[in-house]
Design a protein around this nucleic acid. Sequence first.
DNA 1: ATATGCATGTCGCAC
DNA 2: GTGCGACGTGCATAT
Lengths: 263, 263
Amino acid sequence: MQEPDKLTVLTNPKLTEAKTAIEKALLQKRTIIVAGNCHVHYSGRARSTLELGERLLIIKEDGALLVHRPVGYEPVNWQPAGSVFHVQTKENKLEVHGVRQKPRESVLVTFNQIYMVSALSLNDSGDFLLHATEDDMHRAILMKPELFEEGFKPISWEKKVEPGFVDIYGEDKDGKLVIIEVKRKTATKEAALQLAKYIEPIKAKINRELRGVLVAPSLGKDVQRILATMGLEFKELDPKKCAEVLKKTKNAKLETFFGEDSQ
Amino acid sequence: MQEPDKLTVLTNPKLTEAKTAIEKALLQKRTIIVAGNCHVHYSGRARSTLELGERLLIIKEDGALLVHRPVGYEPVNWQPAGSVFHVQTKENKLEVHGVRQKPRESVLVTFNQIYMVSALSLNDSGDFLLHATEDDMHRAILMKPELFEEGFKPISWEKKVEPGFVDIYGEDKDGKLVIIEVKRKTATKEAALQLAKYIEPIKAKINRELRGVLVAPSLGKDVQRILATMGLEFKELDPKKCAEVLKKTKNAKLETFFGEDSQ
DNA sequence: ATATGCATGTCGCAC
DNA sequence: GTGCGACGTGCATAT
């Protein structure tokens, strides 16, 4: 079931042994994990130094590099995919050097002690799906406009209108034009200003009543007031609810496909 | 030199063995690495599903969780520090469930096979220093104002002025007020608008000539034109150069401390 | 190649 | 807690 070399682990190796194992794993494009005592220097878009301490170094098969401290979600140092690596021992230390071009930047990890080197051949082709994004909210409104408002008829979306793109625009039940700006979380004053920026030039261009509506799960502190002074509206809508709607719509479609009634 | 339990590694353990090892390591607040075949579900601010595949699961001593695919810099799923974990075996699968409150969100990693479980006690107190940030640029200009302009006298920085904070303000050699907005990389039109937003209210309030200057290593495409129409200026300045200046200044101080001339 | 905007952004700091 | 901006942001997309 499992190739003999799917996994290689060295515990408390000598630095030279670690060097050999890492170089071999790099050639084989395996996922490498090194645990040890190291310091780190980065130079490129900025510069950084990380003093001696015990961390994890991870190098992936596509040349991504991560240095993780024992706390925190984010890597303390890293290198994006596509980096090229060089390993060498030097004065009783092991140096792992990762370089990428465009932008030119490099990370140097210097170990004085290594607790573990692990090399894995990982096979991963599973799909990743993310729901309840802003884009899901757009699609949900387009597929089920009454989510926004009874009688709303979408006309277009992601429409270029100087000075940017309008999320959705359409007509309400009274035939008024509606410009919608969608946010997937609490809308800030920035969002209100963004909407206003889109509205004004259009108002100036067309001679017709125009509603600007901010759609979001909630509003920031002073945003309601700002909207009011600008004659804009707010409509509450939750990204989760939109995701639900999309799911149901998808189910409905599938049912139709299989010859069943869709509600 | 090294405690006997600094490092524990299990290779190709049974799921029940893995469960025991992970639970023990969680109690000991060690850094845990699990390599295996799994699928992942996330629910919280959004929702996601990741189909079956071989990945790394990392749980840190502060309750941060990372799921890494064999490619890419970013984790495919994660949970910030402070999450609480629950491990159980179920129908020949091992479930690792991480939950955090505020916002309420959870990640469920379900393994059907495990290649390695590793638990480490990492000791890391080394300082991390990042140079050539925007803040370094502020400090460099404050310490050596001629970096910005000959005769410039800084008055204040990070000054609250409705509707936000001005990076630096001061007086030029002719006694004109100068408002400086600093960017560490190519300045976009957003930066220009940000500067304008600060300038306008101040102009309205004081009765005095006022210069608005965008300081950055370079300008985006139409930004020069935008600055011109708004009567704003651009001054080229590189964050690396600022970092250099700070370094020299620091050295100069040290030299003084040691009784030597500082140029 | 550059520009624009989203992200389960994260993180830090001020109010 | 909320707001605001920086980040070695990364990332996808459209031009």
